[in-house]
Design a protein around this nucleic acid. Sequence first.
DNA 1: TTCCACTTGTGAACGATTTCACAAGCAGGG
DNA 2: CCCTGCTTGTGAAATCGTTCACAAGTGGAA
Lengths: 219, 219
Amino acid sequence: MNDFTSRVADAKIPDATVRRFSLYLRYLEDFERSGINSVASGVLAERGGTTAAQVRKDLSFLGSFGKRGLGYSVRELTGVLRDVLGLDSVWRVALLGAGRIGTALFRYEPFRARGFHITTVIDNDPGKVGTRLGGVMIRGEHELECALTEDRTDLVIVAVPAPVAQALVDRVVAAGIRAVLNYAPAQLRLPDDVALRNVSMTVELESLSHALTRVRRCR
Amino acid sequence: MNDFTSRVADAKIPDATVRRFSLYLRYLEDFERSGINSVASGVLAERGGTTAAQVRKDLSFLGSFGKRGLGYSVRELTGVLRDVLGLDSVWRVALLGAGRIGTALFRYEPFRARGFHITTVIDNDPGKVGTRLGGVMIRGEHELECALTEDRTDLVIVAVPAPVAQALVDRVVAAGIRAVLNYAPAQLRLPDDVALRNVSMTVELESLSHALTRVRRCR
DNA sequence: TTCCACTTGTGAACGATTTCACAAGCAGGG
DNA sequence: CCCTGCTTGTGAAATCGTTCACAAGTGGAA
């Protein structure tokens, strides 16, 4: 925990705002590397494709620590955002499914850089169990509960085929996990106190193809 | 184009609704495989984690073809959704970047199943250019415009490192592409008439870690 | 000290999306 | 035919998110 913890207002922050925090943080880190000390809302807005008012409103959820006339301290804002996004601790992640998607996710560098360490990999293919992915031993599905406990897993990434996903996730939840990132093309049903985010490859593509279809028709 | 084209009201449909259409379609295809002929809004809602009213409101954007007392014809609704999502034509897709993410996307079966055919792959690694990914020859970055035209590309998937993304996309847009799916951790700036969807691996993870942090603090 | 240019923080207006509530339509049974 | 149970379609209300507009704070220059 850093110096800014105490200032962080912890009222419920809209989901859309939290997602933009991730983006702001990304830009701020760029600025920090460039040696820039302060940014105005307008600058962040331009970088992030929103408006200055939006940026200020978003940041106002965290309290008020901008300087009027000057903008925000890059260092301070970076700290606050990292704190509110929970990026100051290391999160222990279990990856379910070591197929193509799973493997690509495992190897995705930015995860580790942000403190998400994949410490557990589960797959039910007997040919894979016992082999290593990166430095991590792939364990069989039957070891799931065991592995989650032993490795003190904080959150789980689901990258298994859709038909298997729900059953597996039920076990994950029963094992006490409270956050799931789902890449399987299935709508998972979870208790309300478990945080769930779905990433669907096809939903985005289909929304694009809808947009293209509309354009086409109008001409 | 299928029988239902004429019925599709083409007023502007909210983005959130279009995204749900993708989900509904997925479930409907399940139902169709199971030999179910009609579904009520409540059933779709339960499957998709929303409410019956939401489903009905969404579908009302497409006109009204449910049967009161009965629900919707699975076959008819499937047709309408496929049509409005533009899934009745084949879309020719170019993949920029044949790294880990790019490769995983290329190999992702559901894309092809939905009519998204990756016909072009571009990478700037000289070691990769000239080799094949699946059946597709990887071409150099300098051939970009050329490739897009020759292959009659409809939409582009960006899976290159963030620093390169903007420059590449500018060229893509100049070449007349009107839809971009961006996997690079960069906020792309495009003209308004180009449809853009961002998929960010880290944004979702960070929103989860924010959720976890909140839970922790409350106890 | 005063003025000026700049920027934040925020209530209020606005717009979009979701939920509610209910009239109207359909099928099946008696 | 009428009644009952079920489900759609949709205005109206409620909720949620974004944009506007401006008072108030800041640093620097004169």
